[in-house]
């Protein structure tokens, strides 16, 4: 894989030299109150068609009420090489969680 940003799913989709349709990542809001969730990808020549292809492909069974499409090439992802320095330092900050604190017996709504 190339070192450029390759989208949350990681791969392919370049148009370089070929006449293939670019790759789009698709996000669906399954119902009101929930955020958009990545569901997969598809190919489309442009944003308008990507949105429509996304509708036809990923919401055939009423899976969604709202749709995002994002060019896969526009996503910058954290690198697995940086995983340790990115995410491990959060591990020992247990005071960020309410369960870290002791509450005297009988105290409520805290």
């Amino acid at each position: 894989m190339s070192g450029v940003s390759t989208g949350s799913t990681g791969g392919g989709g370049s148009t370089g030299g070929r006449r293939d349709w670019p790759l789009w990542e698709v996000f669906v809001r399954s119902r009101r109150g929930l955020s958009h969730v990545h569901v997969g990808s598809l190919h489309a020549p442009d944003a308008e068609m990507a949105l429509r292809n996304g509708r036809d492909l990923y919401t055939r069974r009423q899976e969604g009420v709202s749709l995002w499409v994002v060019p896969a090439s526009a996503i910058t992802a954290s690198s697995p090489d940086e995983k340790d320095s990115f995410f491990d330092p959060a591990a020992d900050k247990i005071y960020r969680h309410p369960t870290f604190y002791e509450v005297p017996e009988g105290v409520e709504h805290l």
Binding site: W21, L42, H43, A44, M49, R52, N53, D56, L57, R60
Partner: peptide, 11 residues
Amino acid sequence: PELEEDVALAN
């Protein structure tokens, strides 16, 4: 002409 269009036309 493309697989996505198969899905669209079937719809």
